[in-house]
């Protein structure tokens, strides 16, 4: 399954893939490229991945969410060059009620950020580039 993609993310087919008459709650998380990071202007970025493991880890996360909340869940993460405003990641979760839809959606995006081997190199307004290290940010704050 292509959970990791180098093509633009289309939200509507993802939502459609989890909808069904018995699922009344659909939660959507869309992560977009923002134009700043720690006070610096960001003009774009590149995502790279260890693709076979990223696919496998994403599939494991989705299976966990389905098992834990009985929700239907779908995920796409973009790799390659992205511009400000582009969708980098989308998670949709559908369940009978909103609580489990929100919980499953939240679980998937948090686990993706924690476990999936994807890396981000930001391009700054001053022309410089840097790999983003979220753990360094945690240590600073």
């Amino acid at each position: 399954m292509d959970l990791i993609t180098d093509r633009p993310i289309e939200l509507a087919p993802l939502v459609a893939s989890v909808q069904s008459p018995e699922r009344g709650g659909v939660a959507v998380f869309l992560g977009q490229v923002r134009n700043h990071h720690e006070g610096r202007g960001v003009v774009g970025l590149e995502y790279s991945a260890y693709e076979p493991m990223a696919e496998a880890e994403c599939a494991r996360i989705l299976a966990e969410a389905r098992s834990r909340w009985g929700a239907a869940v779908a995920l796409r993460h973009r790799i390659g060059a992205l511009s400000v405003g582009d969708a980098a990641v989308a998670v949709v979760a559908a369940s009978a009620h909103r609580e489990s839809a929100f919980a499953a959606c939240r679980y998937v995006i948090e686990e993706v950020k924690r476990r999936v081997p994807i890396w981000k190199r930001e391009h700054y307004a001053d022309g410089s580039l840097a790999w983003v290290d979220p753990t360094a940010t945690l240590q600073r704050t």
Partner: peptide, 10 residues
């Protein structure tokens, strides 16, 4: 064996 920098997806 893959050596993985801090992950930055999402």
């Amino acid at each position: 064996i893959a050596v993985l920098p801090p992950m930055a997806g999402g």
